[in-house]
């Protein structure tokens, strides 16, 4: 057995240390004694409880902070168009699709359903496939908007309007092969508007590619050729709708007249037979 594995005989250093310990031990006086030991136990337990409570609160707070944005998103997603008054509602310019498919002309807005009808007294000038009534191509610089030309749109219908004070408008609906193609088209169009100097005043909440909720965009052109102009774009299922207005009031639509609001509401509610109509403020 090696020397390293059995107790060594007391060497000089060992002797010195043992003598030291025998000398020192009687001189030791521990302040506080065993009472201090019990007090330390109590303090350690209190600190541990506090640490657990603090950790628990921190965890709850973290969960709350992580959970809050989705909750807020959820709240705002319930009313995606209501952070400020919109030009029109998504449902008014793109009603639910016909069960038989196709683009019925009844989906196009009646003149009285257009914004500010009380002031401009809109009337329809043409209804058709939109081939002979192009949408305005206004923008800043050399920009020329293509709208639905050159896209994979399979069918289009359009109605043009004119009103007092040389105001004009057009409502157009385009049908695409599927939801994905429609989503792509509306995003391309939104980007083109942005590139042409139109200012975005409303955009849809972040949507995934599988979402079927209507996507509503609103843009306004305040400078450049054909300004002022305003457009509302809606994409839902395989269709995209655009309502373009050329009126002197393009930069402020927040103060729609009560008659227009009422008529718009009537238009929407007429599609839902059990919804009571608002009190009438005049003929639409």
């Amino acid at each position: 057995m090696s020397d390293e594995t059995r107790r060594p005989p007391q060497d000089d250093l060992g002797t010195l240390l043992h003598d030291f310990a025998d000398d020192a031990e009687p001189l030791i006086s521990v302040s506080g004694g065993v009472t201090d030991v019990h007090e330390r136990v109590r303090r350690h337990r209190t600190r541990r409880r506090l640490a657990v409570t603090t950790a628990g609160c921190a965890a709850l707070l973290s969960l709350g902070l992580w959970g809050l944005p989705p909750l807020l998103d959820g709240v705002s997603a319930d009313r995606p168009e209501r952070t400020r008054p919109g030009l029109v509602s998504a449902a008014s310019i793109l009603p639910a699709p016909e069960s038989g498919g196709g683009l019925p002309r009844t989906d196009l807005l009646s003149p009285s359903a257009l914004p500010w009808n009380a002031g401009y007294r809109w009337h329809a000038t043409a209804t058709g496939d939109g081939a002979t009534t192009p949408l305005p191509t206004g923008g800043t610089g050399d920009c020329a908007l293509q709208w639905f030309d050159g896209t994979s749109a399979e069918d289009q219908i359009a109605r043009t309007y004119s009103g007092d004070s040389d105001t004009t408008a057009q409502h157009r609906i385009a049908a695409y092969p599927d939801n994905s193609a429609a989503q792509h088209a509306v995003r391309q169009l939104a980007e083109a508007l942005h590139r042409c100097g139109w200012h975005e005043t409303r955009s849809p909440e972040t949507q995934d590619h599988n979402s079927t909720a209507p996507a509503l965009y609103e843009y306004v052109l305040t400078h450049g050729a054909e300004a002022p102009l305003r457009v509302a774009l809606v994409q839902s299922d395989h269709r995209v709708a655009a309502l373009v207005l050329a009126t002197p009031q393009a930069d402020d639509h927040a103060h729609a007249d009560p008659r227009t609001e009422h008529c718009l509401e009537q238009t929407v509610n007429s599609a839902q037979p059990h919804t009571p109509s608002p009190p009438s403020t005049g003929h639409c």
Binding site: E4, T5, R7, P8, G14, A21
Partner: peptide, 13 residues
């Protein structure tokens, strides 16, 4: 190490 081995007489292991 010194205290454990020389004072408390513990083997190296």
């Amino acid at each position: 190490a010194v205290v454990l081995h020389h004072l408390l007489d513990l083997p190296v292991e």
